[in-house]
């Protein structure tokens, strides 16, 4: 027994050099080379094969408005206190506590700052009023180191003015696409050029607790719920199936069991499909269980 022990001890370095340890498989994926070759031939061929196969879908039979309200069932989740690590005199005057307010519950349990938008609406179906090219200016202000609009939705090309009503400088950083200083009391213009499939975070690098969200869409088919949880998206194409996406800051896509217009439903990946009746308002009242936010 002992003999073997010493043998093992002394042969260990040897085994190290001669032996072979398994490579971490998780870092690499084995792909089928035949499948790769096949796909490569397909990609290298000229012209796009799939285009011709595509069938012309029937257009909308009219336009309709989707309106409704998001509400919370149960007591709101506890608020998260923010760490005001800079400029406390301006950002937390009088040493007051500042909360993240990411789950803003209004009257009657209305949930604010929920984003709902129609995704992938065929460009030809878009109603004139929702076409890109809106020129009315959106004001995006900040005061006491809080973005006054927590979730802002704009269309591509729509001008947005970023205001700074604080006596300190801020900067606005929109994920990976924009990052500019806004001197105290000044404003800078911002124009988004790229559509987003979910709201992107906006922040201030100087005051890192400051957050807000920006949704950029080509068409106008989006809404952000108001303080009482209500929203309205007018002039949606009716008679065709539309995919809606619903987003909330803490939940990302809203998914799980909830109540829609009084009946229980389950949403997956924060989306649901719906076909609207022409020239008729469609009600969408959603009640989210409080447990969802925990």
């Amino acid at each position: 027994m002992l003999k073997r022990f010493w043998m093992i001890c002394t042969l260990l370095p040897l085994a190290f050099f001669a032996g072979c340890s398994g490579s971490p498989e998780a870092d690499f994926v084995q792909v089928n080379s035949a499948a790769v070759e096949e796909l490569r031939t397909k990609l290298a061929s000229s012209g796009s094969g799939t285009e011709t196969d595509q069938q012309e879908e029937a257009g909308p039979s009219g336009y309709a408005t989707l309106k409704g309200r998001f509400a919370l069932d149960g007591s709101p989740p506890p608020q998260i206190k923010l760490d005001i690590s800079k400029d406390p005199a301006i950002c937390a005057p009088g040493g007051k506590d500042v909360f993240a307010n990411d789950v803003a519950v209004g009257p009657n349990g209305g949930l604010a700052n929920i984003v709902i938008f129609a995704n992938g609406v065929n460009e030809d179906w878009v109603h004139d009023s929702a076409k890109p090219g809106r020129t009315d200016e959106v004001i995006f202000d900040q005061k006491e180191c809080v973005f006054l609009t927590h979730v802002v939705g704009i269309q591509t090309g729509q001008p947005m003015t970023v205001l700074n009503s604080d006596p300190v400088a801020h900067n606005l950083k929109v994920s990976t696409t924009f990052n500019q200083t806004i001197p105290e009391g000044k404003s800078v213009p911002f124009v988004a050029s790229k559509e987003l499939n979910s709201p992107e975070k906006m922040s201030c690098s100087i005051h890192p607790w400051m957050t807000a969200y920006l949704l950029v869409r080509n068409d106008g088919y989006f809404a952000v719920t108001a303080e009482d949880g209500s929203f309205e998206i007018p002039n949606l194409p009716a008679g065709v199936e539309l995919e809606f996406r619903v987003w909330h800051e803490r939940l990302n896509g809203i998914k799980g069991d909830l109540q829609v217009n009084g009946s229980a439903e389950t949403w997956k990946k924060g989306r649901f499909e719906m076909t609207l009746e022409p020239s008729q308002d469609q009600e969408l009242n959603v009640v989210l269980p409080a447990a969802m936010f925990n």
Partner: peptide, 15 residues
């Protein structure tokens, strides 16, 4: 321009 990928912001367009 600021420095891409970092918190360094671009100078305000006011400058």
């Amino acid at each position: 321009n600021g420095i891409d990928g970092t918190p360094m912001p671009a100078a305000s367009s006011q400058l």
